[in-house]
Design a protein around this nucleic acid. Structure first.
Length: 279
DNA sequence: ATGGCCCTCATCGAGGGA
């Protein structure tokens, strides 16, 4: 049985980035490394404007939670990778969930479904766009911390119901200093504050594993670089996009990496995709 | 040098991102 690849990518407007998205999916396919599931964040449009037709033509089903201008998340599934029982957009996404049932939220930041790939036990895939938080002490930071607490509550329930859970997305948290280009300059700031890192540790204590850190990685590996100050060229970045796996999925995990290639394309998203492979 | 860029909108300046 062939392995599967699950990935996450904050595209910073799917309208602008659709050409990159299609090019990236097709480039992975040509490398004989197709993406079987892709979680997208920051769509910045409502569901009726989502490019279902283009992605369908590229071979993907989509489950979308959108809103105007801000946020918005999707879960894409490669049709040809799905089990025979999941051959239309209804049956591909089982027990679909938009947003956190335990946290009232106007902002569309979570979409989840149970997915049956060919020849495998079903797994629960969650695409999440964590709040940015602006800065510790602000109202937006307080919203972020409340949102994280709500996510913790929901995830502990999800883990009771499902043994195979993957949480993919833009966490807006750099879990440790090795995930930050200049830890001293960032100390105590948004994305790296002790409160945020404690929340990330909470997910680990629930039983999740950071798939990227299961493997040896190059130092200074990041997933986001500021558009300003030539951030990408200087590799002045942070690692804030993550793929966390429950114990059972962790035992199947054989690789994880960040694909920096699309970040170097013309008019890129400021995030790079993260890919994790399951045997 | 405490801001530089990019995306969105009952747009052309401001909010949000990280």
């Amino acid at each position: 049985m062939s392995s599967i690849r699950i990935a996450t990518w904050n595209v910073n407007s799917i309208k602008v980035r659709l050409p990159h998205l299609l090019q990236w999916l097709s480039s992975q396919e040509k490398k004989d490394a197709p993406i079987d599931a892709l979680c997208l964040q920051e769509l910045k449009l409502t569901e009726d404007k989502f490019p279902y037709a283009e992605l369908n033509a590229a071979g993907y089903y989509a489950l979308v939670a959108g809103q105007k201008t801000y946020n918005g998340v999707a879960l894409l599934l490669k049709k040809s990778s799905l089990a025979a029982t999941a051959q239309d957009s209804e049956t591909a996404f089982l027990s679909p969930q938009k947003n956190n049932p335990k946290f009232q939220d106007e902002q569309q930041r979570i979409v989840a479904a149970t997915v049956a790939f060919k020849g495998r036990q079903p797994m629960r895939l969650i695409s999440a766009y964590f709040p940015n938080g602006q800065a510790p002490g602000t109202e937006k930071f307080e919203y972020k911390m409340n949102w994280l607490a709500g996510l913790y509550d929901w995830l502990s329930e999800e883990l009771e119901e499902h043994s195979r859970v993957a949480l993919l997305g833009d966490y807006n948290i750099a879990p440790s200093d090795e995930d930050v280009h200049d830890p001293k300059a960032w100390e105590g700031q948004n994305l790296v504050s002790p409160e945020e890192r404690d929340a990330f540790s909470g997910f680990i204590e629930l039983g999740f594993h950071d798939s990227y850190r299961m493997f040896e990685q190059l130092p200074k590996s990041f997933s986001w670089w500021d558009y300003r100050m030539m951030g990408f060229r200087r590799n002045a970045g942070v690692r804030i996009d993550h793929i966390l796996l429950s114990e059972e999925l962790k035992n199947e995990c054989i690789a994880s990496f960040i694909d920096k290639v699309p970040r170097g394309w013309e008019q890129p998203s400021d995030h790079a995709p993260v890919i994790t492979t399951l045997s």
